[in-house]
C-alpha cells in the first residue's frame, strides 16, 4: 500500500515536470518544425523544404546583420575577456573595502533592467555625439559582457595557492612574466568559460543592441522588426539557427562550469 502510493507520487512529480518542460519547449519545437514547412501558412503542412533556409542566405539584409552580430560578438568577447580577467586578478589582490566596492559596481549592470541599461547608454552616446551604430553597440556589449568574465574567473583565483605567485617573484620572476606563467595557466579554465559566456550573451542580446545602434542591425533586431510586421517563415529558419547555436554554446558553458564545481 505504502509502496504503491509512493509510486503514484513519483509518477505525479514526473508528469508535472514533463508538463513544465512541454510548456517551455513545445513552442520552440513547433517553430523549428514550421521552418521546414513548404506552406507559408502555419495552418497546414504541405511538405518538407529547405527553401526558407536558402532564402535566408539570399537576403542581403540578413547577411549584413549576421556580419554585424558576429563581428560585435567576437570583438566584445576579446575586449571583455582581457578587461574582466585583469579586473578579477586586480580585485583579488585588493584590500577588502575597494574590492567590495568594485564587486557591487559589477553587480549593477546585472540588476539594472535591460531597457534602462539600453536607454542610459544610448543617452550617453548621444550626449558624447557618437553616432549610434556598430561601434556603440560594441561598447555596450563590452559593458554588459565584462562582469560575466569577471565572475567566471574569480572562483578560480580563490582556489589558487597564493604562495605560487610569491614564490615566482622570490625566484626573480618579473611580475608580468609571473602573471603570464603562473597565474594565467591556473585560471585559464575560468577565463575560457567566461569568454564563452560573454560570446553567448553578445549573440543573444536584443534589448541593449536595439537601443544603442540605429544604423547597424544585429540578427535579433532583424527578427524584431520582422515580427512586428507579422510572421514570416524565413524568420522561423533564422530563429531556429540562432536557437541551435545558442543552445549548443550554453550546453558547453554549463558542462564546463559544472565540471569545475565538482
Amino acid at each position: 500500500m505504502v509502496r504503491k502510493s509512493r509510486g503514484a507520487v513519483k509518477a505525479f512529480k514526473w508528469t508535472y515536470l514533463a508538463l513544465v518542460l512541454a510548456f517551455l519547449y513545445v513552442p520552440i519545437a513547433v517553430m523549428i518544425a514550421l521552418s521546414f514547412n513548404a506552406s507559408v501558412s502555419r495552418a497546414e503542412w504541405t511538405g518538407f523544404t529547405f527553401d526558407w533556409y536558402a532564402k535566408l542566405f539570399e537576403s542581403d539584409a540578413i547577411l549584413a546583420a549576421l556580419e554585424v552580430t558576429i563581428e560585435v560578438a567576437l570583438a566584445a568577447t576579446a575586449v571583455s575577456t582581457v578587461l574582466g580577467t585583469l579586473g578579477a586578478i586586480g580585485m583579488h589582490a585588493m584590500k577588502k573595502g575597494w574590492a567590495s566596492l568594485l564587486l557591487n559596481l559589477s553587480y549593477l549592470p546585472m540588476t539594472t533592467p535591460d531597457i534602462v541599461t539600453g536607454v542610459s547608454l544610448m543617452l550617453m552616446f548621444i550626449f558624447m555625439k557618437i553616432p549610434l551604430g556598430k561601434g556603440t553597440m560594441l561598447m555596450a556589449h563590452i559593458a554588459f559582457d565584462t562582469p560575466y568574465v569577471l565572475f567566471a574567473v574569480m572562483p578560480r583565483l580563490k582556489q589558487m595557492n597564493p604562495n605560487l605567485y610569491e614564490a615566482a617573484l622570490d625566484l626573480g620572476c618579473h611580475p608580468l612574466k609571473a602573471l603570464y606563467k603562473v597565474i594565467l595557466p591556473e585560471i585559464l579554465p575560468g577565463v575560457v568559460t567566461g569568454a564563452l559566456l560573454a560570446f553567448t550573451m553578445s549573440l543573444d542580446d536584443f534589448v541593449i543592441s536595439y537601443f544603442t545602434s540605429s544604423t547597424d542591425q544585429n540578427l535579433s533586431m532583424v527578427v524584431y522588426s520582422a515580427a512586428r510586421r507579422g510572421v514570416e517563415p524565413t524568420m522561423y529558419a533564422l530563429s531556429t539557427l540562432m536557437f541551435l547555436v545558442i543552445l549548443a554554446l550554453l550546453l558547453i558553458v554549463n558542462r564546463r562550469s559544472s565540471l569545475e564545481k565538482m
Binding site: 513552442p27 520552440i28 513547433v30 517553430m31 514550421l34 502555419r42 553567448t200 550573451m201 543573444d204 542580446d205 536584443f206 535579433s220 527578427v223 524584431y224 515580427a227 510572421v231 524568420m235 522561423y236 530563429s239 540562432m242 536557437f243 545558442i246 543552445l247 550554453l250
Partner: peptide, 13 residues
Amino acid sequence: WMNFLLRTYAMMT
C-alpha cells in the same frame, strides 16, 4: 539564457 525575443516569437506562432 536564451534570447527572449526568439522565444516570444515562437509563442506568437
